[in-house]
């Protein structure tokens, strides 16, 4: 019984991140975990991202590799791409966004339900890349709020997985008051 209790304790401490006294759990023989609701919900959210891969360009090749069998997104819970914004919560903007494509990106972002996160995959999404010209948006953060920036042209799959882990850490620290955030703050020029 002592071993079981310590294992439960370890699990609970992992989830909440701080040590607490064992009172009620010991009384209930380790069949109950107590934590804050925020922490539990964040834990569920971060290990079950439903991606919307907004793939446009060359980074899409690395996205296929990341989703492939060698560098596996499924290990991190983010396996299932949902090709509808209504059903997904992680918008991965993969590749260059041109001015013609920009309204579509904003529309897709607005159609997603909160909570939602945006992952800028590749340096063209982060800042326009080396396409500093008349037709490329210089970074999608001029259009929608971005949570994680992964530069690279294209980024190696390990970098993408690192970005995903950082996003998971970010989600872990969220509070209820962060949501809802509202529509993307853009204007039609």
């Amino acid at each position: 019984m002592g071993l079981k209790l310590s294992r439960w304790k370890a699990t609970r401490d992992l989830m909440v991140g701080q040590k607490q006294s064992a009172g009620p759990e010991r009384l209930l023989d380790g069949s109950v975990i107590l934590t804050r609701l925020e922490a539990a919900v964040n834990w569920a959210r971060k290990y079950s991202f439903f991606l919307y891969p907004f793939v446009t360009a060359c980074c899409g090749m690395e996205f296929m590799s990341v989703a492939g069998p060698r560098y596996d997104l499924d290990r991190f819970g983010a396996a299932l791409p949902r090709f509808s914004p209504r059903q997904s919560d992680l918008l991965m903007v993969v590749g260059t966004i041109s001015h013609k494509q920009a309204p579509i990106l904003v529309k897709v972002y607005n159609q997603m339900a909160e909570p939602k996160w945006v992952f800028a995959f590749g340096v063209c999404a982060v800042s326009g890349g080396f396409y500093d010209n008349y037709s490329v948006v210089q970074g999608i953060d001029t259009l929608i709020p971005v949570d994680i920036y992964v530069p690279g042209c294209p980024p190696r799959p390990e970098m993408v997985l690192d970005g995903l882990l950082l996003l998971q850490q970010k989600v872990k620290q969220e509070r209820w008051s962060d949501w809802p955030r509202g529509e993307a703050p853009v204007s039609r020029c």
């Binding site: 446009t56 360009a57 013609k100 494509q101 579509i104 396409y131 010209n133 008349y134 037709s135 490329v136």
Partner: peptide
């Protein structure tokens, strides 16, 4: 089409011959 137009030709006209390769 044209949603991925990135201005390849215009960028090439503003780079040296070797810089076009990327």
């Amino acid at each position: 089409i044209g949603y991925l137009h990135r201005g390849f030709e215009k960028m090439c006209e503003n780079s040296t011959w070797q810089q076009v390769i990327p």
